[in-house]
Amino acid sequence: MRIDGFSGEMRTMMLEASNTATAPSGAKVGADFNDMLTQALNNVNGLQKTSGDLQTRFDRGDADVSLSDVMIARNKSSVAFEATVQIRNKLVDAYKELMNMPV
C-alpha cells in the first residue's frame, strides 16, 4: 500500500476539477462535484474497512499480517478521516457565510 495514495488522489481530483470545461448549465458541475465527493468518501470508507480487517486478522494471529502493516493502515485511515472532517468543516463554514450574506 502506498502511503501517499490519498493525497495523490486528492491532487488528481483537484486537477480534474480545475481542468473541466465550463458547462452551459450548473447541472454538469454539480454532478461532477457530487461524484467526486462520493468517490472521496468511499475511498475513506475503504481505508477504514481495510484497517479494521487488518487489525482483526492480526488479533486472530494471522502470520501474513505484521504489526507494522496494521499501524500503517490505521494511520492512513486516520489521516484520511481527519482530512474528510476538515473538508466538511470548510464546506459548513462556506455554507454559513453564504447564508449570512445580505440579499
Rank of each mutant, 00 (worst) to 15 (best):
V70R: 08
G46R: 03
G46N: 05
N34V: 11
M36I: 08
D35P: 00
N42L: 15
D59Q: 12
P24T: 07
D59P: 09
S51L: 00
A31G: 12
V70N: 09
A27D: 09
F58W: 09
M36S: 05
L47W: 01
D69H: 09
S51M: 00
N43E: 08
T56P: 04
N43K: 14
D35S: 10
M36Y: 03
T50Y: 02
L47H: 02
D59I: 12
S66M: 02
S25Y: 10
G30T: 14
T56M: 10
S51P: 00
I72E: 12
L37M: 07
G52I: 07
D69F: 04
V70Q: 04
R57H: 04
N34A: 13
Q39G: 07
Q55E: 03
Q55K: 13
R57W: 02
P24R: 05
K49Y: 01
D32Y: 02
S66W: 01
G30N: 13
L47S: 01
N45T: 13
D32E: 05
V29Y: 04
G26K: 02
D32F: 04
I72N: 09
D64K: 13
T50A: 03
N45R: 12
L37A: 08
A63I: 15
K28E: 10
D32K: 04
S66R: 06
G61T: 11
L47N: 04
G30P: 06
A40H: 06
G46S: 10
